[in-house]
Design a protein around this nucleic acid. Structure first.
Lengths: 106, 106
DNA sequence: TGGTTATTTGGCAAAATGGCCAAGTGTTGG
DNA sequence: CCAACACTTGGCCATTTTGCCAAATAACCA
């Protein structure tokens, strides 16, 4: 785990989110905790693949798991990712001019 | 350019930011436009490497270039990235509890 | 115009990622 | 205890990403 400087550390978060399947997982978790098996159905990949994706998100501090019985329910910890993703979507929908996000200024 | 769905499209932005050198560039641009040569000194890599990093950021719609004379000054277009990065930093500084970001809630 | 500076692009080898199967760990219920 | 279910981890190969050098393009100035 090389976290020499801020940029290295921050990049871990972006790397974790830099995959469509992981963004789909984050999207699914935005409405509340979901277990791995349900995420498997949503994503449509092998369970091992989904588990590894979740592991990446967990190591980056974006989600956390809560074991209940034989299931592990994951939920978002770094909640501001949801807002940022929405900002990106807005940008694509109405590309041009300034970023329409509010409350995040300098 | 495969942009089949939203997740694919969004991941392009995160991929672009998923590198310490590129985050360093974004950080440098947060205070205003900077040309490639100055960024080269800041990042400390070969100019060609820096240029390619910028190219990634540009293709993702995060920065845009403005040619003045023989220099190209880059600036941030997706300004909300700055706020998001700050949120990440805050999270690391005081890890625990809820995300301290405001104005980005559901 | 020719030389200098600024930036981009091509190409390639090294490193990092992604995704499957197979195997391991842990929990529950018969 | 053993089988079944939920999840994680190891291993392996295919794909992508990085970053350097070299070469191309562009703008400037003497």
């Amino acid at each position: 785990m090389s976290l020499d400087n801020d940029f290295e550390r921050e990049s871990q978060v972006f790397k974790a989110l830099a995959h469509p399947a992981r963004l789909q997982i984050v999207s699914a978790l935005a409405d509340g905790p979901v277990c791995v098996n349900d995420l498997r159905e949503i994503v449509g990949s092998d369970v091992s693949t989904v588990s590894k994706h979740i592991s990446v998100l967990k190591n980056a501090g974006i989600v956390k798991g809560d074991k209940r019985g034989q299931n592990v329910y994951y939920e978002i910890v770094l909640t501001c990712v949801i807002g940022f993703i929405k900002c990106i979507d807005l940008r694509f929908d109405a590309a041009g001019g300034e970023c329409s996000c509010v409350g995040q200024g300098e």
